[in-house]
């Protein structure tokens, strides 16, 4: 007894041994007149691929991708914009350090970490690296460890680039 017969028995179906084999043959997907359209699977994949939840970057990047990440970090260091914010530093005038430098550092670290976790297609990581490099290029914080200070009341509102422009 094959799997289908066994299932039919469990379902309480008595197969029609004269008609049902003909139906199987006549209606099987592979017996479609004209067949299944060429490229159907590809078109379905194209319509759905971007909806797949992408796995973590780290899982997808693989060992080779790390070289790109290392290059990215080296580039950041060579640009001299790695921001080191000394917390607990005496604040002139009793102000509160803005979150500008912290935010930049945290953002960049997040992005670098995200790239480190990337394991997708290489063209995508190239794109991300380019974007990150552009952000570094646009970064106009001074190449020092200086921090910016404002009054306490303006700490949140002024957490932007001193030149007035948004960082990213």
């Amino acid at each position: 007894m094959n799997g289908r017969q066994e299932q039919d028995r469990r379902d309480g179906w008595t197969p029609d041994d004269s008609l049902e084999p003909l139906l199987d043959e006549a209606l099987d997907a592979s017996s479609l007149p004209g067949g299944v359209p060429a490229g159907l699977g590809d078109r379905v994949l194209a319509a759905t691929a971007h909806r797949l939840d992408k796995p973590g970057v780290l899982a997808r990047i693989g060992p080779r991708g790390w070289s790109a990440v290392a290059a990215c970090v080296a580039m950041a260091l060579s640009l001299g914009i790695w921001v080191n914010v000394p917390l607990n530093t005496a604040t002139p005038g009793g102000g509160t350090p803005t979150t500008l430098a912290h935010n930049d550092e945290a953002t960049l670290k997040r992005e670098i970490n995200a790239l480190a976790e990337y394991n997708g297609p290489s063209d995508a990581i190239d794109h991300d690296l380019t974007l990150l490099a552009m952000k570094f290029d646009r970064h106009d914080l001074p190449e020092t460890t200086d921090t910016y200070w404002t009054g306490d009341d303006d700490a949140e509102a002024d957490s932007v680039d001193p030149s007035g422009g948004a960082l990213f």
Partner: peptide
């Protein structure tokens, strides 16, 4: 469900002809 494109492709390739065949036989409209 983990985002593995190869698994998704296998699923699509295995099942899309059956889904298509079911609908085209039901409707007659490719």
């Amino acid at each position: 469900s983990r985002g593995d494109a190869q698994s998704w492709q296998s699923l699509v390739e295995a099942y899309s002809p059956r889904v298509y065949a079911l609908i085209v036989r039901q409707t007659g409209d490719p």
